[in-house]
Amino acid sequence: MSPPVFRFAPSPNGYLHLGHAFSALLNADLARQSRGRLLLRIEDIDRARCKPEYEQAITEDLAWLGVTWEQPVRRQSEHFDAYREALGKLQALDLIYPSFESRGEIAQMVADRGDDWPRDPDGAPVYPGSRDSLSEGVRRARMDAGEPYALRLDMRKAVKLAGPLTWREAGRDAPEGVIAARPDAWGDVILARKDMPTSYHLSVVVDDALQGVTHVVRGEDLFWSTSVHRLLQTLLGLPQPTYRHHRLITDSAGRKLSKSTQSTALRTLRADGATPADIRRMIGLPEP
């Protein structure tokens, strides 16, 4: 039997904080305990916000924590062709369509529909448009004219094609560890844009499959995103990992940490004299 494969996949758009430390160390601990492998993936599809200096800081912080990973490191920005190929498969199934509304136009569309308009699991309004709002000919003409657009998944059609979905969850209480996926709660999610051939949802499932990841261990803020990932895995014929969604490290007000919170940045804590053992105590992880 092949060893389990774990991964830590930060975005280099800021410095790592205590929440990242928890996820990275938990993945490393689980990989070691199961005699598995740990991969590092740099999720840098947002080239405007991701910086080389942040990637360098990520490797420095992880090394200081005592986390080791296999080489080579996978950088998403080096694999856009793989995401285009996956998008092409979805297009061949007639599951993708372009939308042209700006963020402001979408906000106005939502406002026009009233306060009871549905929201996705993250609390954002579900996309209020649909594939039927424009003919295929009009959509193609607008794309050919160079207008900005987003490529969306036709959720209703995709769910019908995929059928009922579940995932194996090791991090929450669930009957037999199985969670019923609810991808339709997200509406017609964006999978790419005119100037970006992928999105988080698309690239993460492609990367996990290509890297042979068997165990996805990540924060519970991504719990219901797994519904979309299971849908895409099924449509693309990709394997299903086991998922474990861990608790989040929060600030004194109970808010999820962000990279702008310098007081919890690992580099700041290290400069103030903290040790890797101190970090483990602060996030509630025992010594290995």
Rank of each mutant, 00 (worst) to 15 (best):
S2F: 11
F6A: 04
A9T: 06
G14N: 14
L18Q: 12
G19M: 05
L25V: 12
A31T: 06
R35S: 09
G36F: 07
L38P: 01
L39A: 05
I45F: 07
A48I: 10
A48R: 13
I58M: 10
W69K: 00
Q76T: 07
S77G: 07
R84M: 12
R84H: 13
E85W: 13
L95N: 10
I96D: 03
Y97V: 03
F100E: 01
S102A: 06
I106F: 00
I106Y: 04
G114F: 12
P118K: 01
P121W: 00
P125H: 01
V126M: 09
D132I: 00
S135K: 15
E136H: 15
G137D: 15
G146Y: 00
E147R: 01
P148H: 06
P148M: 04
R152G: 03
M155R: 03
K160G: 12
L165W: 07
T166N: 09
D173V: 14
I179L: 14
I179H: 11
P183W: 07
L191V: 13
L202I: 02
S203K: 05
V204Y: 00
A209I: 04
V217E: 01
V217N: 10
R218I: 03
R218T: 02
G219I: 09
L222F: 07
L222S: 01
T226I: 06
V228Q: 04
G237N: 05
P241R: 00
Y243H: 04
R247C: 07
I249E: 03
S252D: 10
R255H: 12
R267P: 09
L269F: 05
R270G: 07
T275R: 09
L285Y: 02
